[in-house]
């Protein structure tokens, strides 16, 4: 009887060790899979986006088609330091764009926190910049933007919070970055339907990705896509 008891205890002990080892190796596999999923863009070249429908266009960089495709036009805005920011600032840079306002009572804070993750990931990489446009430029003066930048740890050489002519910002947002989801409602310059989308812009000023600025996996994908874009050109 005693021998059976000891055998039973030993068996249960080995079973526990076996299950523990098996479980921990499974967890490692799952973790590896998760990391793998975020390590690649899964395509040779990221697609191009050229209108508000955001239908992916698959083309090769440097092709004739790519050269004639929709590009972000030049602009002149002012950042949190009072410096003039134009397309020249983004020459030979990959940049991430969003639209926000400092008095936003809700999701802007989460968007800003997620943008901070992009800033952190590329803080030592001069090829990558961030451009956040205020959609309330009359309220968001340079000093207001500076206070916001200081509060959220915005690095001046990496992340430009910009204000400027309202019509210019709204035209950029609606007609060039296509960030506004108007859902069929006609809009004037006084209206803006603010959304959480982040856009990825390549060195040739083409839109190469649209991401949900509130979604953690979307932000991880954006980080991966920036790295892919860096290898592309």
């Amino acid at each position: 009887m005693k021998m059976w008891y000891y055998l039973k205890i030993n068996f249960l002990g080995y079973l526990c060790i076996f299950l523990l080892v098996g479980f921990s190796s499974c967890r490692k596999e799952i973790k590896k899979e998760m990391v793998k999923a975020e390590e690649t863009s899964r395509v040779e070249f990221l697609p191009y986006f050229g209108d508000e429908s955001f239908t992916p266009n698959w083309m090769t960089p440097e092709s004739k088609e790519e050269k004639e495709f929709h590009k972000i036009p030049d602009f002149e805005l002012t950042n949190q330091l009072g410096d003039t920011i134009t397309q020249k600032t983004f020459d030979n840079k990959i940049y991430v764009v969003d639209f926000f306002f400092t008095s936003c009572p809700g999701i802007c804070l989460k968007m800003t926190n997620n943008m901070t993750k992009i800033q952190e990931a590329f803080k030592d990489d001069p090829e990558v910049l961030i451009l956040s446009h205020s959609v309330t430029p009359t309220i968001d003066s340079v000093s207001v933007l500076k206070a916001y930048a200081d509060k959220y740890g915005v690095l001046a050489n990496k992340w430009h919070l910009v204000t400027g002519d309202k019509e210019e910002i709204y035209t950029l947002g609606r007609d060039h970055y296509f960030v506004e989801n108007d859902l069929g409602e006609p809009k004037s310059v006084d209206d803006f339907l603010h959304t959480e989308n982040f856009l990825l812009i390549d060195k040739e000023k083409h839109i190469r990705g649209i991401y949900n600025g509130l979604n953690r996996s979307s932000i991880a994908q954006l980080t991966t896509d920036i790295k892919s874009l860096k290898k592309e050109i």
Binding site: C104, P105, G106, C108, D191, L193, H194, T195, E196
Partner: peptide, 8 residues
């Protein structure tokens, strides 16, 4: 995307 806040 879900809209954030509509501005007028």
């Amino acid at each position: 995307a879900n809209s954030c806040y509509k501005l007028e």
